[in-house]
């Protein structure tokens, strides 16, 4: 069976919307972070698939993916550092406890 571009796109779309769903519904900050990673990785799949199947003679998509991976690693590092700081303060990382700042 030949694997065409559509397979990759279906996977990436499912990942993207699963990420959005998770971002909205998860109750743990780490799970929210994982959902965001799903979104970012679905973008990477998109870029690589488009580049490989539609524009095989250039490299722009691959490069973008490399940069996107690096940057999402930075984001994760910063987010985890902040989450650890929250844990030190209130001893848990439930979203519902982030309620000091409100109207």
């Amino acid at each position: 069976m030949e694997i065409t571009m559509e397979y990759y796109l279906v996977i990436s779309t499912i990942m993207f919307f699963a990420g959005i769903y998770g971002f909205i519904t998860r109750r743990n900050l780490l799970a929210v972070l994982i959902s965001i990673e799903l979104i970012l990785n679905s973008v990477d799949i998109n870029f690589v698939a488009f580049n490989r199947f539609l524009y095989p003679d250039q490299m722009e998509g691959f490069f973008f993916t490399l940069f996107a991976i690096g940057i999402s690693a930075c984001e994760t590092a910063v987010a985890i550092a902040i989450i650890i700081n929250i844990y030190r303060n209130i001893r848990n990382i439930q979203v519902k406890n982030l309620n000091k700042l409100k109207d």
Binding site: I39, L40, V43, F47, F64, I86, L98, K100
Partner: peptide, 25 residues
Amino acid sequence: EAGAKYILSATFASGLSLYGISLIY
């Protein structure tokens, strides 16, 4: 808490933007 709220929503927003960029590409 402000930092967590900012990094999560900012990353989410840039994820959405990126998805748009990938489709444009």
